[in-house]
Design a protein around this nucleic acid. Structure first.
Length: 311
DNA sequence: AAAGCGGGGAC
DNA sequence: GTCCCAGCTTT
């Protein structure tokens, strides 16, 4: 599966071999890679499912859901032909339920516009619902083996520290980070490389407490000297609004209520309300209706004949 | 550029 | 209780 070694260092003298950043990190990865189920396949459909699940959802929470979802929807065709309601049900409890809707729509779009074959080019992948810059390049690279730079928050942080030093990764533009990523990408080994950077970002190059002394990139890292003296300043928290009681919270409650067995035929607002809010009363109906309209816009519920139901 | 979108687990 | 996490879409 892994391609032959790149030739980028073939002109270097023998004694310099193994001293390149890429060689160090790829060797470290060969010994320390996390054994994750989506790394055991290059099937584009399985890769697509994994990458969408991993959007803003930690590895530990995707792990138990991944195989279960694939068992329920083993192929792209199975996913495309399933009712969206089933996809939304199976999606729980990953959160960001719109992803389930997008994933369903993406499967349908692949059938209708690409003859059932997930496209290889990032520009084409990017046009599928729910697939942005990260997911498009991840599929192109991990499933199709393209030398495509992949940039997620982990890789962004690692590359910025490695190449630009101890500064806030968020202050670097996406364009610049992608440029850096492309610049250091080892030809022919891009998938291993990006996954190595992800593992380093997740396990060693932590946001607040980087373990520079354990890091294979330390000798080449622009930020390590600084961090070894003093860890990075903890990120200042943006004033976060309370989650409980927020529209987001109630949206989640609504979708969760509709997932239940009793709600397969849908629920009236009067029946739904008490499931959502303590002490729900008729005067709360406009409030609930607003939430439902938002969910309907997102394709997460359908409003029909006095009833609310998963689409 | 900024807001909105979930929810389980770590602390 | 607060904060985090392999982003994307819409305004």
């Amino acid at each position: 599966m892994p391609s032959p070694r790149g030739t980028t260092h073939s002109l270097k003298k023998p004694e310099e071999r193994g001293t390149r950043l890429q060689d160090n990190l790829l060797a470290w990865y060969a010994a320390h890679a996390r054994d994750l189920p989506w790394r055991r396949t290059r099937d584009p459909y399985r890769t697509l499912v994994a990458e969408v699940m991993l959007q803003q959802t930690g590895v530990g929470r995707v792990l138990p859901k991944y195989e279960q979802f694939l068992q329920r929807f083993p192929t792209l065709e199975a996913l495309a032909s399933a009712p969206v309601a089933e996809v939304i049900r199976t999606w729980a409890p990953l959160g960001y339920n719109r992803r389930a809707v997008y994933l369903s729509r993406a499967a349908i779009a692949v059938i209708e516009k690409h003859g059932g074959a997930i496209p290889q080019e990032p520009e084409l992948l990017r046009r599928l619902p729910g697939i942005g810059p990260y997911t498009a390049s991840a599929i192109a690279c991990f499933a199709f083996g393209q030398d495509e730079p992949v940039v997620d928050t982990n890789i962004r942080r690692v590359l910025v520290r490695l190449l630009l030093g101890a500064r806030d990764p968020r202050t670097v533009s996406a364009r610049e980070v992608t440029g850096l990523a492309r610049q250091v990408l080892p030809r022919g080994r891009a998938a291993e490389w990006s996954q190595a950077l992800m593992d380093i970002g997740a396990g060693l190059c932590a946001r607040d407490r980087p373990s520079c002394s354990l890091c294979p990139a330390r000798p080449r890292c622009a930020a390590a000297p600084s961090f070894l003296k003093q860890p990075p300043a903890p990120r200042r928290v943006a004033e976060s609004r309370p989650y409980y009681g927020s529209p987001r919270y109630f949206r989640g409650r609504i979708v969760e209520a509709l997932r239940s067995r009793e709600a397969v035929q849908g629920l009236t607002m009067a029946a739904l309300g008490p499931h959502i809010k303590e002490g729900y009363a008729v005067e709360d109906e406009p409030w609930l209706l607003d939430l439902l309209k938002g969910l309907a816009r997102d394709g997460l519920v359908r409003l029909a004949a006095e009833r609310v139901v998963l689409p």
